[in-house]
Structures are given as structure tokens and as C-alpha cells.
Design a protein around this nucleic acid. Sequence first.
DNA 1: ACAGACGCTGAACACTCGTATAGTATATTG
DNA 2: CAATATACTATACGAGTGTTCAGCGTCTGT
Lengths: 225, 225
Amino acid sequence: MRSISEHSGHGESVDDRSTKARIRDAGIACIAEHGITETTARKVAAIAGVSPALVIHHFGSMDGLRTACDDYVAATIRDFKEKTLSSGPSLDVLAALRDAPSEPLVGYLAQILSDDSPAVARLVDDLVDDAERYIQQGVESGLLRPTKDPRGRAVVLSLWNLGSLVLHQHVERLLGFDLTDPDALTSPTASAYIGPLYEIYGEGVFEEPFATQIQQLFTESEGTS
Amino acid sequence: MRSISEHSGHGESVDDRSTKARIRDAGIACIAEHGITETTARKVAAIAGVSPALVIHHFGSMDGLRTACDDYVAATIRDFKEKTLSSGPSLDVLAALRDAPSEPLVGYLAQILSDDSPAVARLVDDLVDDAERYIQQGVESGLLRPTKDPRGRAVVLSLWNLGSLVLHQHVERLLGFDLTDPDALTSPTASAYIGPLYEIYGEGVFEEPFATQIQQLFTESEGTS
DNA sequence: ACAGACGCTGAACACTCGTATAGTATATTG
DNA sequence: CAATATACTATACGAGTGTTCAGCGTCTGT
């Protein structure tokens, strides 16, 4: 029972819907919940309510499904970031992403971030690029301090954010705060994580004489090489 | 061919050596290099130069081997940290760990940190505890700033460190710096990561009026609840 | 109305996995 | 020296995997 048009099988950009999309969403959900290695063709098929063979029929292989999921998630994140870009800069790359789409994008990210695929690498690169742009905006508007290494700071901040996401189980166990929860930021337990985070963002951790001491140690070694 | 004594099969603490230890080390090496799901009994056996059945004979099951690896790595890290604890506090929990033991402990950690086992959870808890202790030392000696939430700051800083480790592929791709490299800290590319890190540790990222503004926003909401 | 394409399924294949079992060699114990 | 325990291997089994194939219904274009 095919629902609408979509006669050609390539389904690249827009008319992606119906069963094939349901299988892809099932793959995303399964990966987000159980991880990549636990996501089998039969499980995805069961979630989507189809036969295992249909998964292969639509995506060629399980690797094809994986790629399709990566691409779709990456595209969704990019689209969503473009929409919310106008609402102002943010240091948390995924803050706005948590509540908006119905799919468990954050959980998916948390699962695949540590296992590299080309699509994930490109997505991370994009997130870092956007962070660098956001941060530059913040510097120009006077909210953020300037830095010697804008790119490096964007990379480090982004990867700290994403790393916390990957280790969300430990965050939850230690602070009682689930980063993959859709309404994580409005949770009363959010301050257990965001409090220390903003404190470090605000004043650092080094006391003043020590900070400039280390800072000069790095400007020396960086000036020579 | 058993080498020394070790008649009893429980091999708990010290007399752990010879073939059984070689198999465990092969497991650690395989997990560190290829990840947990790619680590099969046959691969471990091939690395250790034994038959797959011997892996089961010594560890009961692959899950038993996994637990033995977790426990051994955790114990090794704890032992090593006790030794280097006297050399002074450090914010990087794993800095000293990289060069010392011959085994790829950091790579192993990077692989298992995102997949929770009881041993890993305990190890992370210990690392956070130690970090909290280190940080308190730093505060008392005037190197580090005091905080409203010592525990939270220790958790956040530790998990940022460990998260970067899990995402070491992205760090390497974006900054050309391999965190799992045994001599990573002496590498000339190290400053690409450590530079921004120390800058943030030194002065934060928020500009002054903005920092206190957010800080007060959190002291208000924290004072009420 | 007919022909072909498409969505979809059930069953099977080849393969890899963990693990059990039987058996061999070596070392320790009496 | 005999007996027993231990280290170790070869082989096989059952479960689960991705994927293929033949076929069934329905829908589309002519």
C-alpha cells in the first residue's frame, strides 16, 4: 500500500515520506535508544511494522540505512539551526535542538558521535563552524571575551558540549540531570550542570596570578614556533 | 604450559600473570583499538596466540573477560594515580596516565566510557572524587578560584576531560592533536588543544558585565529552591 | 483491459558469533 | 611410577546476523 506519488525510487530531497521514511525513523529511534551495534535489520523492521527484507529493499543494505539516518539527522539539525539562528547566538550548540523535532535527535547524536562516519564528521565540522560564528558575534556584541585562537576556542567549547552529551549517563548518575531529555533545560535539576558550567564560563577556574602565569607560558612557546 | 604457581583459578589480586594475563591484555588492546563490539573471542585469542576456547576457559565468558578488563584497567589507573598523587594536583585527570603504563589504557577508556558498565561507573566516580580533592587543594593553595559548588565543578571539569577523550577522533581531525597518543602532551600540536583550554580555565569566556549578570541569575534561582 | 512496475513478504542462504564438549599434553601430587 | 589436576586445542552446535530470491498483490500507464 503506497500512499502518495513518489514513483521514482531515488527520493532525494522533499517527497520523502511514507514507508521508507518510517523505516528510516525507526532506524533513528532504534539507534538513539539501543546504539548502533544493537540496531539490527529485524529490530528496525519490527519497529516500523514491516518485514526485514523491506529494509534492505529500500536502503540497499544496513550500511545504507545507517548513512541515510546520518544524512537525515544532519540535514534536520542544519535546517533547524537555520531557523533558530535568528533568535540570537548561543554557546550550547544543541540547546534549541532538544525540544523542537519530535525525533530523538540528541539521543541519536549521543550514540554516533563516538563512532565516526563521514556524515558525522561533516556535521561536527558544521557545528564547530556555527559555534565559531556565534562566538564571534558574542565577542562583537561585547558579551564574550576576545581570544587569541577563535577557532581553537570554538572547537574546544563545542567538543566539551558534545562530549558531555556522549557521557550523558555519567552526567545523569553524578548530577541527576539527563542531557538527552527533550525538556532538559527547563528541568529543576538542570542547574546542577549548568550552574558550574556558567561559573567556569564566567570566571574560569584559575586564580589570577596563576592564570596570567600560564597564559604567558603559552604566548612564549607560541611566539617561537 | 603454566609458568609459575597460581594453582587456584580465582587469581584475584597479585599473582596474576602468564597466559591468563596475556589474554586479558589482548582483550584490553583489542578493545582499545577496535572497540567493544568488534572485539570477539577469536580476535582476542589470535592476538594472545591461543585458541578461542581458552579465552572462555579462563574467563567463563566474553562478558567475564570484559569485566576482568574493566577491573584491571580501573585498578591500574587507581594504583598509578596513587603513585603520582604526590607530584601535586592536576586538572587533567589523565595527564600522567598517558605515558606511564605500556598498555593502551587511555584508548581503552575512550572506548568504554560511553558504554556503561558498573566498573566504569565506579572508575568515573573515583576520578571525579579525586578531581574534587585536587581542586580543593588548588583552592587552598591559592591557584584555583573558590566555587559555590565544588562537587559540581569537579564533575563538569572531569566529564569535559573524559568527553574530549571519547571524541578524540574529532579533536584530532579538527586540531591535529591525538589525545590517545602516549606522548600527546609533549607533542608540538598539543598547544592547539591545551592553549584554548587554559585560556578558558584562566579567564572564562563571558565578558565581565555579562558574567555577573548570569551569575546573579543563578544565585537567585538557587536561593529559592 | 492488459502489461509492467512497484511495495512488500516468507523463506532460505551463508556467515559469524559465543560457548559447550571431548580429548590431548604437561605438570603436580601421592 | 601411577593418578589426578590443570593448560590447552579441535570441533561442533545453536542462535543471530545481513542479505537474496521467488512470488504475491496492487497500482499506473497505455
